[in-house]
Amino acid sequence: MNRQIQAIAELDRVIHEPGRLMITALLFAVESADFLYLQYETDMNKGTLSSHLSRLEEAGYVEITKTYRGKVPQTLLRLSEAGRKAFAEYRRKLKQAVL
């Protein structure tokens, strides 16, 4: 099989979905962010965003913490070490596939 096609076949399917790719890329660049920030940047509704985050949490890529900022409940999200490694690997494979 051609090297580029093989790289496409090996892309991480959990991250490759456009919505989850946006989430992981945004979280990769920060230490942590809250649900509201991801909703603002991705323009997804609460249900869709929650569903993508659940999928990423199941895969062990995202850590979700429920906390409070003052009296307001806040959902903090951060990429786990496994998530960081998976995203870095995804970018490497994507480069292989398109270059």
Binding site: E31, D34, L36, Q39, L76
Partner: peptide, 16 residues
């Protein structure tokens, strides 16, 4: 940040 930005478009902690 705490009275306007975080309440409207969310909170971000940057990597140091």
């Amino acid at each position: 940040k705490s009275r306007i930005t975080y309440r409207r478009t969310g909170f971000v902690a940057y990597r140091t």
